[in-house]
Design a protein around this nucleic acid. Sequence first.
DNA 1: GTGGGTGCAAAGGATTTGCACCTCC
DNA 2: GGAGGTGCAAATCCTTTGCACCCAC
Lengths: 167, 167
Amino acid sequence: MAHTSTPTGTDKQERLEALRRRLADGGHRITPQRLCVLAALLDSNQHPTAEAIYARVRKVSPTTSLATVYKTIDTLKALGEVQELEFGDGRYHYDGVDPVPHPHAICTRCGKIEDVHLPQTVDLSLQARQLSGYAIASQRIEFYGLCKLCQQHGTQQHGSRPGRIKP
Amino acid sequence: MAHTSTPTGTDKQERLEALRRRLADGGHRITPQRLCVLAALLDSNQHPTAEAIYARVRKVSPTTSLATVYKTIDTLKALGEVQELEFGDGRYHYDGVDPVPHPHAICTRCGKIEDVHLPQTVDLSLQARQLSGYAIASQRIEFYGLCKLCQQHGTQQHGSRPGRIKP
DNA sequence: GTGGGTGCAAAGGATTTGCACCTCC
DNA sequence: GGAGGTGCAAATCCTTTGCACCCAC
């Protein structure tokens, strides 16, 4: 099965290679810093922030700057290979694994983010087009609530990122 | 009909009064500045930003500060009477008319924002709960594309707010 | 009268930018 | 060799905060 909810190491390797090629074909240079950013972007299924990517990159390449992380992300955005997401915590998250907009569920306690595979998102767009008259190009669907773990363990704090989630 | 897509002056008046009472009942003082902010918040159907509210307020009350606008919005948020929205332009928009989360359509050219009255949003939440296991408390649904006007007039720029809309 | 509210200015956090130096192709 | 990329620091943008003064209750 190609796309389980947890990508395999092989999937990541393939995606990394695809991104590398995409950059090269787009006339961009393949630098060690960029490769590190790509790897960090794909390495977590956690929809990382720029800061999180930066932290991962620094473990391997301590001199790489946060500016380079942002610039690389910008480049990937321009190529349509990364999706910029906003989950109400005041900073952007990035998805380089699946750059096509898709629904997410965000835990308002621990910040955990999961993809939600709703089947009828296309229908929604069509319906929205009829109701609003807008020529809809993309959509954003997010659900906010407590993840399974946070529902069980009532008062404890799970996950790594705190960050006030708003909705 | 109580809720057409364009609220009548009377609707606004009623909502203003409701907010005024809500503040008072919550032990908050009714100051002229706050009344101006409330009026400005409700006066536009445009889901205004803090800056936009500030601009409207200053026409009537030129000494009111932006900090007061933000603080008043915070108070209303705490009361659950205003919804904080984020449309990918890097700043928050506010909806004090309908503080319950509901779908929006955003024009990626002119920034125009419209409510979309999708009937099945509750079903979506239920489905998302089943698929993800999250205890879903709220949701966010947005559609991005060209509004009717921007579809017609191909290259021209309409609306007031430019602001890079991302998705 | 007094505690909450206001306004100013300064701080804060995330992202962007300018520019000299470096390096991949 | 040269255009594109990097890294530092400064700048920008929106939002929040600290604090002295003020006024709604």
